[in-house]
Amino acid sequence: MAAVSHTSTGVATAFTPDDVAALVVQPAIQMSVAMQAATVVPTDSTSLRFPIITDDPSGSWVAEGAEIPVSDAESDEIVVTPSKLATLTVISSELADDGSPEAQQVIGDGIARDVAKKIDAAFFGNTTTNGPSGLLSITGVQTVDTGASITNTDVFADALSKAETVGAVITTFVANPADILTLAKVKKATGSNEPLLGNDPTQPTQRTVLGVPLVPSAAVSAGTIWAIPRDRVFIVLRKDTSIMISEHSHFTSDRVSIRAITRAGFGFPHPGALVRMHDAA
């Protein structure tokens, strides 16, 4: 359950326990590319286990009335323990004492942006000190060599196919904004003004490749495009997100400290379903 504590009447008006999820958690999920591309799993537990099926059960053709051979699925599991992400910000006492929805929104949006940015950086990165390990730390990820430049959708088709060979369906491509800009300028054919990238009519600002959304994230290294199947990638988010407020640490400057604690972890139970597209050279 979300929690909040305070030391002044004005601050207490600015935040209530019911505000925490609406002001921080939900906006952070919307702002985070990683949490949009993956399956977010809220939990009250310290850790969460995800099964890994290493080999499916094997059926047999048998005669009527004959014994059916027993075949067990070979499985393993990964344990995801959400890591602590702490955000500390300082605001003026005047803003803290302003109980208006607009003032709450300003404070909440700032914390949510920071949470989303930190989660994305860890998710698309390698290892994070005191934090969860990201996509670059995984072994067993499939790859597609894009060469020095992408001039058509063939490499995207290759990525979709590689995921399909292991029973996965790519739901999101994620790339650095600079790479998406480059792709946006590529035309379908010489002399054509029709862009290589498509658009989703229901979301005019969203680009698509072969019908799959292509989403920008500065957390992705330039030159890399991730092909992600949402149902094979998990972000575990603890439900006990908290906001604690104190006016003691900055007493001499008449300011208020706001500390937000969020816990998140990543689970990649099927590495082979992920495809990294990059220039292998």
Rank of each mutant, 00 (worst) to 15 (best):
T128A: 14
D145E: 13
G125M: 09
Q142P: 02
F123W: 09
G134A: 11
K117P: 03
K117Q: 13
P132W: 07
G147T: 03
V141H: 00
N130P: 04
L135W: 03
G140Q: 07
F124D: 10
T129R: 06
T146I: 11
L136M: 10
G134D: 08
A116D: 09
L136N: 10
F124T: 00
I138P: 01
T146K: 03
N130A: 13
G131C: 07
N130T: 14
A148F: 14
S133M: 09
L135D: 01
G125T: 05
A148T: 13
G147C: 08
T129D: 10
G147V: 03
T146V: 11
K118G: 01
A122I: 01
S133Y: 09
A121G: 10
V144I: 10
K118L: 15
F124E: 09
T143V: 12
L136S: 11
T146A: 15
F124M: 04
K118I: 15
L135I: 15
T129F: 10
A121D: 13
A116I: 08
T129G: 06
A121C: 03
F123E: 02
T127I: 13
G125Y: 11
Q142R: 09
I138H: 01
A116Y: 02
T146Q: 09
G147R: 01
V141W: 06
G131H: 03
V144T: 06
I138V: 14
L136Q: 11
A122W: 02
T146N: 09
G125P: 04
I138C: 01
S137G: 10
F124Y: 13
D120S: 03
A122F: 05
F124S: 06
T143H: 10
K118A: 13
V141G: 04
